[in-house]
Write a protein that binds this DNA or RNA. Structure first.
Lengths: 393, 393
DNA sequence: CACCTTAGTTAGGAGCCTTGCCGAAACCGA
DNA sequence: TCGGTTTCGGCAAGGCTCCTAACTAAGGTG
């Protein structure tokens, strides 16, 4: 079935969308510039802008363009377009950002967490971070009229149920930040939808964006796999340009994948670390410090290093077989370790279907970068959507 | 960036698309019926139909509706809308179908192949099948004016390179139909694009369609995995409602996946069959007959049966970890074997993240069913596209 | 044969986009 | 300081699409 009914209203909405998207990409433009950019005639753009101004979505900034000829008056998105909330929950801290449709971070805050803090402590930290962001947002520029948080995007360092957005505890896997329901926690702060996903998936998105921007060795491809090796083991599968989450959102939870153990036997990935004595005391989480020390001391061909490479290369083989990535990006604290990446590359070259292995390029808070990018995209869609169907605004 | 520039031409194209889609779904309709179906006013529909008749895409069939009130004149898609070609290449036969936008099979043919026929024999069989279809098509109804084959969809029983459409021979995997280039072979028969993919992916699509239609136990879900166990080992991954092919089209080629071997050691899937003595003489293909005999004779707990179930359950685990399917559908000659499915279900229930295992419901030529469905969808899009951008027609 | 019902056409109106033209306003060089 | 040039934004006319409402045409029904 076709997209929409043919009506003049549809045309109007379409020009308005063009205007909004142009302003999102260029911050401020004169009507003549918008016309030039979109290829739509000047009178039509003028009408569209007027309508958007009446709606309150666009404002005349008062500034004037300079250059030859008459100066045009700049227009820009108004505050009423609202903002998006970006939240990152890791075992170390809750980070919170408020971004607008341009991608500017309007306000941000971070509340550190003690190791092993329970779900209650985490949710309290989240409330604190939200309050800080709210305060920062209100003081930075005076009136803040109509500032509404339209959507939220949450990154959590645990598996996320796709349908409910709740964090889930998988058997024999570490549960780092605990039993949280971000949708419920943010319900009174955010008007619109709250999108929750795990940090690895967001980090993959950041990696993808970096690749498209031309970063060396990054995943510019529409099909790649991001392997995240840290305290927990994660993986993101990007197919046809999108992170694929699977039925319940647990795609990429590779802890129980069958691979080659240190003794050559078929072993679940998480068990490999138990056998190598690399688990943290009384936990299923990986003791990253101990692992790195052991890898750092290891000469090439060291059994621990080779056992790790063999186990991860089994994961590689599975990813290649099922997802056929153009490249595999490895991230996470020990995943990016040079010696480990080198060992993995050696293994990978020997596979039946070798695949390039690249270290992640987004080092600092990749999950936040990815979540932020998603938040901006979604916010923009919501703003445009308000024009397309004013009834549900 | 928004879809298209707002223009009156766009509106016109949109009504025409509505008319065409309505006629595709209902074969023949009066203008009043189209108006009722689409919610567009009668005069507008009349204009749209007139334009389409002028273009030659729609014809007045001469029939008249009966019932109370004035009889309306039926309209339908014209022959000029063209047809799509559906080709299935298996080691046993080349099958060829010509379908129209309604999904009717206008003509079909099948040319059997001898076992082990090379690529040359296969391409000769394809030419023969094409000629038969052409002949059948011309005789069945007299004039056939303007019948053009607008697109083709090809299913091949070997891995397909996504970019080129060529069949590829993976190491240590059977190469059943040989080194073919279907796009080249069909180049002079088909005007438009030729879509080539392997049979398992098409079969998965058929399974999906059956599930949406409400077949019991079938994959109506948007996220499932189709495991095809026959001479060759294949797998299709459906994520977010689409078959995902991966970067080079080799997603789902699971032969080299690391799993549990009969001796408990980490073993590549294809090796398991070598170790169990279930490969065909001098080939990497599986000896299905011998396998079935052994499974049929096996009591519950038989080592061969259990070894097979263990190996396949490793694949299951990998698929669950990476793709998170709502259900795993098993197809293929021995994949659907009752005893085997039962053994696999027992294993699956014991997994950390169990997943329902269902036997495939589309038994007869599933790859043809799936390819046909894709061909119809594509053909419809091409017909509509001709209206949307008449310049590139 | 009158009446009812439904199909399709005609007429009028509203809205949107475009081209072409105009005045307004800024910069530039003399 | 003051025309000339250049560009911005507005206005008007024209063309097109869709819609509603009314009308004619053509079937069946009693």
């Amino acid at each position: 079935m076709p997209s929409a009914k043919p009506s003049l209203e549809l045309l109007r909405a379409l020009t308005e969308e063009h205007v909004l998207r142009a302003l999102m990409d260029h911050r401020r433009l004169t009507r003549a510039e918008i016309a030039g950019l979109t290829g739509i005639s000047k009178p039509t753009i003028s009408q569209g802008v007027r309508r958007l101004v009446d709606m309150g979505l666009v404002v005349d900034t008062g500034e004037r363009s300079s250059g030859r000829g008459r100066a045009g008056s700049y227009h820009a998105l108004s505050r009423a377009c609202g903002t998006a909330l970006v939240v990152s929950i890791t075992p170390a801290a809750v980070t919170c950002e408020c971004v607008d449709a341009f991608g500017d971070v309007v306000a941000s805050s971070a509340v550190p967490l003690e190791r092993g803090a329970g779900a209650y402590a985490v949710s309290r930290a989240l409330r604190a971070a939200l309050e800080q962001v709210d305060a920062a947002g209100t003081t930075s520029s005076s009136p803040r009229v109509g500032r509404g948080v339209r959507i939220a995007v949450v990154s959590a360092a645990d598996p996320v149920d796709r349908a409910t957005g709740r964090l889930v505890h998988l058997p024999d896997a570490p549960f780092l930040v605990g039993d949280l329901d971000p949708r419920w926690l943010l319900g009174d702060v955010v008007e619109g939808p709250v999108l929750v996903d795990n940090d690895v998936n967001w980090a993959a998105r950041a990696e993808q964006a970096a690749g498209e921007a031309g970063a060396v060795g990054a995943a510019g491809s529409a099909d790649f796999v991001y392997l995240y090796l840290d305290e927990g083991l994660g993986c993101a599968v990007v197919s046809d340009g999108e992170v694929r989450r699977g039925h319940s959102g647990l795609a990429g939870e590779i802890a129980h994948l069958v691979t080659e153990g240190p003794d050559g036997r078929a072993t679940r990935l998480t068990e490999v670390f138990a056998q190598l004595g690399l688990r943290r005391e009384g936990s299923t989480a990986i003791d990253v410090r101990r692992l790195r020390v052991r890898v750092a001391e290891a000469p090439t061909g060291d059994p621990t290093l080779e056992a790790l490479a063999a186990a991860v290369s089994g994961v590689l083989e599975a990813a290649i077989a099922l997802a056929d990535p153009a490249v595999v990006v490895v991230g996470g604290e020990w995943g990016r370790d040079e010696d480990f990446v080198a060992a993995l590359r050696r293994r990978s070259a020997g596979l039946t279907r070798p695949v390039p292995v690249a270290a992640a390029v987004v080092g600092d808070q990749p999950q936040l970068t990815g979540a932020r990018a998603a938040a901006i995209d979604r916010l923009r869609d919501v703003i445009v959507g308000a024009v397309r169907s004013p009834g549900t605004q």
